[in-house]
Amino acid sequence: MALLEIRNLRTSFFTHLGEVKAVDGVSFQVGEGEAVALVGESGCGKSVTALSIMGLVPPPGKVIGGEIIFAGEDLTKLSGPKMRHLRGNVLSMISQDPMTSLNPVLNIETQLGEGLRLHKGMDAKAARERVLELLNLVGIPEAERRLRQYPHEFSGGMRQRLMIAMALACSPKMLIADEPTTALDVTIQAQIIELLKELKSRLSSSILLITHDMGIVAGLCQRVIVMYAGRVVETGSVEAVFDDPQHPYTWGLLRSLPRLDQRKERLVPIPGQPPDLLASPQGCPFAPRCRWAMRICVKQMPEMITTAKGTVACWLQELGPQAVKRAREEVA
């Protein structure tokens, strides 16, 4: 059984303009020790999905439907104190901006040791030992000296490491990393990605990596979930999604990318803009930007179907695999 299984999750923000369906019927799984990427354009609901799992959706947002089964328990039904316990212990999240998770007035020893004393009942000495171990694990040099320092005394990359150390303090079963390297320079990003790879193999934690960088996905993850406008449009192994993508949005995403190792004459952008989540469409949310849209696409939402290599929600599938392939190859 999967470590995390999300079924038909729906999370909305109830604003004065109306209901924003940020996550609109999302389902996916993350296996034990697996690294899964959640990708899609900004505003498509990646962070809200993560916050829903963590039980941290801010008002006026609310999880209004679905199940989040984590290690056999439905997190949507868990009480506040139980959820808090889970968060410190088996489920951790790191975000794009470390300063939102780090407390600026606590030194590193207190900051990282607090959870260990609280959740693991360690005494001060044991907590200190463990903090040193964690700092070494995430590659922060001169750990002893650093214990007494405050977050502002660390560089951007080092703060990100601190946050990872904090997220790992209680050896979580699952780490949710929301754009963990977006704010960092590429050479620092490379260090953090190496670190995540190492942690995955060493601690066998599951990772749900939220990113818009398909390059990071290709290098770090086993499976990919592609979201568009609050919905999952395609899932599959990394190989399947990159080599044989099924959804027109995924095609568009990959074609619009410039590549360091290739010279492309022209990029192929996706026309138009992502939709407004206030007005949820009747049919496929991608239809207004899809050059293959058929009459049925605007009328009726395509169901998620299982293919040879993954799942996809697109009416083109009704036409058979050859037609899908031809459509994909139409744009050179």
């Binding site: 590429v186 490379a190 390059g215 290709a218 290098g219 990394v238 190989e239 590549r259």
Partner: peptide, 16 residues
Amino acid sequence: EALMSAIPIPDPKVES
């Protein structure tokens, strides 16, 4: 050289 090597490439075969 370091900068080039650090850029992730959106292709699992290349990345590996």
